[in-house]
């Protein structure tokens, strides 16, 4: 009985993640359109796109790794999600969180990108290859402030368990965003890098690489990637909500907090041009890294 409940919980998590993910993306498309003086598509447009893509057949074959790429990507997204507790407490949506899950997440979050990189590299399209190399370079860029921010939190809370970090933020004043704003800033800038919205969309830059890694992928592959993207977006947002906004005790709270967090990359994405690759990496290594180090110092000093 318990097992059944757990398993159904996993599926529920995936369902919620997917739904919230595409709704958020739809929301982003509408907001972007409105700022751009357009009406924009309906909020469920991404769902329609995914359904359409899944219904297509793909005639191109670049070898096994091309099939595996999107599969890796979706696997990584789901796995990441599985190790993120969606709600602070209660029995539902806890998934596989365990002691030290934060360290595990640091690795597993990159896994999807690596899988994609393998798949895209297989296609032989130079645009994909360059996109992949840029993407990996950018990971190198934003991982540093991200790790610094996480380190600050781990040091502060003396734990590597996400659950415990969540539990520690028991009141609004106890939220890490207020307790350690520098870590939040470093983390959110790294988060901008993770979302691949402008100014950090060099891997995909249409004007340069014609969308980069996914350029040889269409139909079901693209559908898989979009599905993966929806789930991964939710996973990341949930992670950040858990880390800095004290998690959520119910789904509604989670949605509100996640949306608030999501607005930051969306808004910045609307109004900024793209950094060049080296500008982006230098940027990550400069401001957010300094802020990240400062946040650790701050924690050390506070303690």
């Amino acid at each position: 009985m318990e097992t059944l409940k757990t398993i159904s919980g996993y599926f529920a998590t995936i369902g919620v993640a997917f739904t919230v993910g595409f709704l958020f993306m739809g929301f982003r498309r509408i907001l972007t359109a409105r700022v751009q003086n357009r009406v924009g598509p309906p909020i469920y447009q991404n769902l329609l796109d995914i359904i359409k893509l899944w219904s297509k057949e793909s005639a191109i074959n670049h070898g096994l790794m091309q099939h595996m790429g999107p599969a890796f990507s979706i696997t990584a997204s789901v796995t990441t999600l599985m190790f993120i507790p969606v709600l602070r407490d209660g029995n539902w949506f806890q998934n596989f969180s365990f002691e030290g899950d934060l360290i595990f997440l640091l690795y597993i979050m990159v896994f999807g990108q690596l899988g994609m990189a393998l798949g895209a590299g297989q296609t032989g399209n130079p645009n994909s290859a360059i996109g992949v190399s840029r993407g990996l370079s950018q990971i190198v860029g934003y991982e540093i402030p991200f790790v610094l921010a996480l380190t600050a939190l781990m040091v502060y809370h003396e734990t590597t368990s996400l659950h415990e970090i969540m539990a520690a933020q028991d009141s609004i004043g106890g939220w890490n965003i207020f307790v350690n704003p520098l870590a939040f800033v470093a983390g959110i800038i790294a988060f901008l890098g993770m979302t691949h919205y402008t100014p950090f969309d060099v891997p995909f830059a249409p004007a340069e690489l014609a969308s980069g890694p996914p350029s040889e992928f269409g139909g079901k592959y693209l559908g898989m990637m979009m599905t993966s993207g929806s789930i991964f977006a939710f996973a990341k947002l949930t992670l950040f909500v858990n880390l800095f906004l004290g998690g959520a005790s119910n789904l509604l709270e989670l949605l509100v907090k996640a949306l608030a967090l999501y607005l930051i990359p969306v808004i910045i994405g609307i109004v900024t041009p793209r950094f060049r690759t080296e500008q982006a990496i230098l940027f990550f290594w400069k401001w957010p890294t300094i802020i990240g180090i400062l946040s650790i110092l701050w924690v050390v000093w506070m303690r």
Partner: peptide, 24 residues
């Protein structure tokens, strides 16, 4: 890397457009 405050905040004024009637 030098960022002016104006250079970072002025672009955000674009968000005003979200309240306007779309052209399309």
């Amino acid at each position: 890397m030098e960022f002016s405050l104006k250079g970072m905040l002025n672009p955000l004024l674009a968000l005003q457009q979200a309240g306007k009637r779309p052209h399309t």
